[in-house]
Amino acid sequence: MQFLFKIYQRLTWLSIDVVLGAMAGMLFFERALRVELAWQEYILLGMAVWCIYTADHLMDARKLVADHAEDRHHFHLIYQKPLLAILGVVGCVGLFWAIKFFGFSKELFFGAGLGLVIMGILFVVRKLAAKKVRLKELSSAIFYVIGISWLPWYEAPTIDYTWTAFGLTILYMGLAYLNLIMLSSLDKESDTESGFSSIATLIPQEKLNPRIHQLAIGLILIALIGLLLVNSLYRIFPSLLLFMLLLHYVSFFKSGSSPEQIRMRMEVAFLIPAILLLL
């Protein structure tokens, strides 16, 4: 069991879990908006997500010294040269493949522009004063969901631009934000030691955790209301979000597990929409 945990841990350090979660999220929006995406679009999304997260971790790692690096950052600090090389290869292959698949179309320019905007925001957030860095979690959550949902939204007919679809998108953003502030709370000690700023290093724990609890309960209630109000054809979608929210809540507040185990369960929650492959 410990061996399997170590394998999974290395996969999380390489952001593979985030990539799979993003692909599962795009499947969620594909089905919710009743469109059909090609498998190439999923691979291209995965490559883009991996490049953005790896670049972010490498930028973090450059600020550290080995003695004070938290495990994930320590990994990127030690292997920064091969990871930079792989990042360059994946980025170039992804760009070439995207041009070949989409051509010089609106999809290509919007996707490339969105990637540049996200990288720009990550850079700007690092330059902001510490009192404004709390924007990092909120902006990351918003752009994460935009990144995984824009292709289904783009390809969906206007008739499917419903309040239900908009509501599911906003609720997914709320879930992503909840995940990020929970992770920030778990990483507070290591972030403080490493000199990183996050919402958990700005807000005292005794104030932050009640806010996390209130947000989690609020999102769970919204998902329950959505489950009751939406058309029966759409009930699977608020049901999945409700399950993902409950898994976050139980993992963070009720499990009594180690931070690494809590992190693992919350990241696994984003794989739940893959169930739609079976339906």
Results as ranks from 00 to 15, higher is better:
Phe252Leu: 11
Ser239Thr: 11
Lys207Val: 12
Phe109Gly: 15
Leu186Phe: 12
Met26Phe: 02
Gly115Phe: 06
Leu215Gln: 12
Ser198Arg: 04
Ala176Asn: 10
Ile203Glu: 14
Tyr234Ile: 06
Val250Pro: 02
Phe243Ile: 15
Ala48Glu: 07
Tyr172Phe: 11
Trp97Val: 05
Pro204Asn: 04
Ala32His: 00
Leu228Thr: 06
Val93Leu: 11
Ile236Phe: 06
Ile99Trp: 07
Met266Gly: 02
Met26Arg: 07
Leu87Arg: 03
Gly218Asp: 01
Lys81Cys: 07
Ala69Pro: 09
Thr12Gly: 03
Glu107Arg: 12
Ala269Gln: 00
Leu219Thr: 10
Leu87Cys: 02
Ala200Asp: 02
Glu70Val: 11
Ile43Ala: 11
Leu178Gly: 12
Leu20Gln: 00
Ala129Glu: 12
Ser185Phe: 04
Met23Glu: 01
Leu183Met: 09
Ala32Met: 04
Leu224Lys: 03
Leu168Ile: 05
Ala98Arg: 02
Leu241Gln: 12
Leu138Tyr: 13
Leu246Asp: 09
Glu267Gly: 04
Ile118Phe: 08
Val89Ala: 03
Pro204Ile: 03
Ala156Trp: 09
Phe104Val: 14
Val230Trp: 04
Phe101Ile: 08
Pro82Gly: 07
Leu221Phe: 10
Leu33Lys: 00
Arg263Gly: 04
Leu247Lys: 09
Ala130Cys: 06
Phe270Gln: 04
Lys254Met: 10
Glu137Pro: 14
Leu208Gly: 07
Ala156Asp: 14
Gly195Asp: 06
Arg211Lys: 12
Ala130Ser: 13
Ser257Lys: 14
His74Leu: 15
Asn179His: 15
Arg10Lys: 15
Asp56Ser: 02
Leu33Asp: 01
Lys188Glu: 07
Asn231Cys: 12
Tyr42Ala: 06
Val124Gly: 05
Asp67Val: 05
Ala165Thr: 00
Ser258Leu: 15
Ile181Ser: 03
Tyr53Pro: 01
Gly94Tyr: 00
Phe166Trp: 15
Gly21His: 04
Lys127Val: 02
Ile199Tyr: 05
Gly226Arg: 05
Lys207Ile: 12
Phe143Trp: 15
Ile16Val: 07
Leu20Glu: 00
Tyr172Glu: 01
Leu83Phe: 00
Gly25His: 00
Ala223Lys: 02
Asp17Ile: 03
Ile262Glu: 01
Glu107Val: 15
Leu245Gln: 06
Ala61Tyr: 04
Leu202Thr: 10
Gly226Ala: 11
Ser198Gln: 06
Cys51Asp: 00
Ser258Asn: 13
Phe101Cys: 07
Glu267Asn: 09
